[in-house]
Amino acid sequence: MGAALLGPREVRALAAELGVRPTKTLGQNFVIDANTVRRIVQVADVGADDVVVEVGPGLGSLTLALLPAVSRVVAVEIDPVLAGRLEQTVGERAPALAGRLEVVRSDALEVDTLPGPAPTALVANLPYNVSVPVLLHLLERFATLRRGLVMVQAEVADRLAAAPGSRVYGVPSVKAQWYAEVSRAGAVGRHVFWPAPNVDSGLVRLDRRDPPETTATRQEVFALVDAAFAQRRKGLRAALAGWAGSPARAEQALRAAGIDPLARGESLTVEDFARLAAQRALPGPGASAG
């Protein structure tokens, strides 16, 4: 079973029919190149047993490419006009596969449950203005997501996949790596979108892993990460003074975690942050833990 994929003419015709103009507010750029969506499905390494979450399906370009390859696609779309048309588009262009599609009209940042079997993979052209929050939210809410392939702004792709010590390593890097092994999976040019964005795009692959072992909660580790990168130019002893209660307590926690107090946040791995977060409750010099 196959699907008739959308090209530039079909995308523009659908948009005209619906009176839709892609909006920057929703981060909409519609894919008009069939080869690109075929490539995304191939690189995503999804198969017949997968239940795929797709965020921001838009007019259905990627949806139509996913349906023949997987058991089910749950498409989360915030735009009511696009959400309302997607099932019809699939029915017209891939009638034998229409039963594999479930459309959820919702803001992906507010999705806590999904209908049907638990999702196993995330494959999406994420809305660029909320790509990182959406990605982190879904990884946190759906532990059954074992892998993902997302298309995001190239700069964001670099940040997500950055290693410690990299100039672009930061909050998105650490938080994504709490959940998964993250890697760049290719570049995507501007010409495959309508309208063409002002930035290049990149593919990011995620392979779920267990979070680092720590007595701290994920929320506590993430609060530490936010604090460490809020003042990137400072060493951690100074940058974490507010987090720990004082520079002295920050230094004590850092030393207890085996981290140089003069190091900066961009030099720490997610395991380092997890280990450090567990030290926060230790009493500082002349202070009580309370």
Rank of each mutant, 00 (worst) to 15 (best):
A196R: 13
F193R: 05
G27T: 11
L14C: 05
A248C: 00
V168K: 10
G91A: 02
V188G: 06
L59F: 14
T120A: 12
T25C: 04
V74T: 07
S183P: 07
A239P: 06
L149H: 08
P164L: 06
D272T: 12
V81K: 12
W178N: 03
E213V: 15
G47P: 12
L101A: 03
V204H: 04
N35Q: 13
R218W: 12
V182D: 03
L101Q: 08
P22A: 15
F30P: 07
D107V: 00
T215D: 12
A69Y: 07
L136V: 11
T23N: 01
A281T: 11
R208C: 08
A223D: 10
T215H: 14
G60V: 02
V103E: 00
V51N: 08
A263D: 04
L139Y: 07
G189F: 03
A230E: 08
R38Q: 12
V46I: 14
L138A: 04
G148V: 00
V171D: 01
F30V: 06
D112Y: 06
V46Q: 00
D112W: 09
Y179H: 09
L224V: 03
V174N: 06
D107Y: 00
Q153N: 13
V188L: 06
L135A: 04
A228T: 09
E102C: 13
A289F: 06
V204G: 10
L206P: 06
R146Y: 01
A161G: 09
V132P: 00
L64W: 10
A244N: 04
L14M: 07
Q279I: 10
E266L: 12
L276P: 03
P261C: 05
S173Y: 11
Q42Y: 13
N29A: 13
S131M: 02
E10A: 15
E266S: 15
N125R: 11
S201T: 12
V53S: 04
P285V: 11
A257G: 09
T214R: 11
V31D: 01
V53D: 00
V41N: 08
L97I: 10
T25G: 07
G84C: 08
S246P: 01
A176M: 13
F229G: 07
L282D: 02
A94S: 15
V76T: 05
V182T: 11
Y179N: 01
T215L: 03
N129Q: 07
A274P: 06
A250M: 05
N198S: 15
A108P: 02
V192Q: 01
V182K: 00
L126N: 06
F142Y: 07
A75R: 02
